[in-house]
Write a protein that binds this DNA or RNA. Structure first.
Lengths: 196, 196
DNA sequence: GACGAAAGTGACGGCGCTGTCCCTATTTGC
DNA sequence: GCAAATAGGGACAGCGCCGTCACTTTCGTC
């Protein structure tokens, strides 16, 4: 889980160094030994950390107080607008619900913080369409299949190719070829979804 | 977060197809449209799902009842030995705490289920050493640096190379070269950690 | 002074993913 | 019927990661 966050961060910030801590104790060691520009805090479940009986708010404020030079973002599983208000007064710049953390969201969040000084929030899942992942497909192929499966019936495939070309900065023709290769792979392995 | 789980699964099971659902509603659609061999359930935070007021146990039992042919594993953030006992009687084969979910754990869990029929549990973090991730390093290099930083003072680097060679099925000499290349990269970019 | 452990550097083949280009049937719509 | 969209397959260069081989230098110790 930590790793997933690290990857999101690395995707959002090219050429960065990320330190991760499993417990509050190690986190406190880290912020004493290093100067961080950005700190993500996941307070974990209430009263979870075995090392200390600290609760969520105490955990957050402790870290924020000891690192006044850094920008702070709280990642939480149990989102709460009230908590967001509370941590905001402490000096936290962002508050993200894990549920709204899709690939790329981190980039957007950081951008918003950079622009509007601080302050971002939480939104609920909008796309509830199921997701399918095939190990035989490369990431690009995977993405193409994903997009194509979400295509509304009244839109031509060609339009999707164009969209994708723009979105990924590649030729629409290349996008087309990706999709075809992906489909061929799935067909050969008998993993052809009905929805294609 | 879902993605992280999917990746763990894909790493554990070569050549598989993974379906993922963001909500119980979509999950129920999926299990009606497909025949699954393995089902991971993350009941989420208590009373979280906006679509239904189902609580954790109800969510789990609903899914288990409707898919008698599948093996079920529950992934939870708020681990509880009592809950594990409860879901076990329902027919759940595994119970994993998110905190003990390190890369590779999934493989071990599935192996244990395959061997011992069912039944796996939860253990707390043992290694609390901090983790560092550099975008400039390739995964292999990253791993090498990680290992080397955890080296006890009384063990020669050569011994680590041998360990790694065995662990990764590569030449100890190659491991040595990886480490050196990684160090060179970090040095050139001024990101040299003190602990090397 | 000699010898071995450790450090630093350069180069190479293999492989998979990416993005591109080209060519041919079949189906769909006007 | 004709044109455009859809479907299918084959080839290629670039690039990064992986694993390997070889060579030089520095340091500490015996």
């Amino acid at each position: 889980m930590r790793l997933a966050l690290v990857h999101e961060l690395q995707a959002a910030i090219p050429a960065c160094v990320v330190h991760a801590a499993a417990t509050i104790a190690t986190a406190l060691e880290l912020i004493e030994a290093n100067q961080f520009a950005l700190i993500l805090i996941d307070p974990g479940l209430p009263g979870y950390d075995p090392q200390s009986g600290m609760d969520r708010l105490k955990t957050i404020s402790t870290i924020v107080e000891r690192t006044p030079a850094a920008i702070h973002i709280v990642i939480t599983g149990a989102e709460s607008a009230q908590e967001w208000e509370e941590v905001r007064t402490i000096g936290v710049a962002g508050y993200i619900a894990k549920n709204s953390l899709k690939p790329g969201t981190m980039t957007a969040i950081l951008q918003t913080i950079a622009d509007h000084g601080c302050c971002v929030g939480l939104m609920h899942e909008t796309s509830m369409s199921p997701e399918v992942y095939h190990t035989v497909l490369s990431p690009r192929e995977q993405e193409l299949v994903q997009w194509m499966m979400q295509r509304p019936a009244n839109i031509s495939r060609k339009a999707i190719y164009d969209q994708l070309g723009e979105h990924l900065n590649i030729d629409a023709a290349s996008a087309e070829r990706y999709y075809k290769r992906a489909k061929a792979k799935l067909l050969k392995l008998g993993q052809l979804p009905d929805s294609i």
